[in-house]
Simulated scan of single mutants.
Amino acid sequence: MSYCPAEELIRREEARGDRRAGLALTQLAFIYQQQELYHIAVDTFYSVCPTNR
């Protein structure tokens, strides 16, 4: 489960301007294929996106 939608990751990647296009989605796919359990999860989408408040 991703705590930041793919669309938002792409938007952030484009806004930064210093990342290779598609890097965020590649990293997202890699991280979640590892199937590791985490002790903590941080929602980086809800708290910064005004449309989700």
Rank of each mutant, 00 (worst) to 15 (best):
F30M: 14
L9N: 10
Y46I: 02
E14C: 02
S47R: 13
S47L: 04
I10Q: 08
E8T: 03
L25T: 07
G17Q: 08
E36S: 04
A24M: 08
N52R: 15
I40Q: 07
A41V: 10
R11H: 07
F30I: 03
L9K: 08
T26L: 07
F30H: 15
D18R: 10
L37D: 05
Q33V: 06
T51Q: 10
S47E: 07
P50G: 02
R11A: 15
Q35C: 09
A6T: 12
Y38D: 00
R11C: 02
P5G: 06
N52C: 14
P5T: 13
Y46F: 06
R11F: 01
Q27D: 05
F30N: 13
T44A: 11
S47H: 12
R20K: 15
H39C: 03
E13I: 05
G17H: 06
L37S: 11
R16P: 00
C4N: 13
A6D: 12
L37T: 12
D18F: 04
F30Y: 12
E8L: 05
V48E: 11
I10W: 00
S2W: 13
S2Q: 13
I10Y: 03
P5A: 11
P5D: 14
S2L: 11
C49I: 04
R53Q: 15
I31P: 01
G17R: 06
E13P: 02
I10F: 04
V42A: 04
Q34H: 10
T51P: 02
L28K: 13
S47Q: 11
Q33H: 14
L25D: 03
A21F: 06
C4Y: 08
C49L: 03
L28R: 15
Y38P: 00
R53P: 01
E7K: 07
A21N: 05
Y38C: 06
Q27C: 10
H39K: 01
L9M: 14
R16D: 12
R20E: 15
A24S: 15
I10L: 11
I31T: 12
R16T: 05
F30T: 12
L25K: 12
S47M: 09
R11Q: 08
P5C: 12
L28T: 03
E7Y: 01
D43L: 00
P50N: 01
E36F: 09
A41Q: 08
Q27Y: 07
Q35I: 06
E36Y: 11
E36W: 14
E36L: 15
G22A: 06
A15F: 03
D18N: 14
A29Y: 01
H39A: 07
R53K: 13
E36I: 09
S2R: 15
L23V: 04
I31L: 14
L9H: 02
R19L: 09
I10H: 06
D18M: 03
A24G: 06
D43Y: 01
R53T: 11
V42Y: 04
E14H: 08
L25Q: 14
E13C: 04
N52Y: 08
I40D: 03
R20G: 03
T26S: 12
V48G: 00
A21K: 15
R12W: 05
A15S: 11
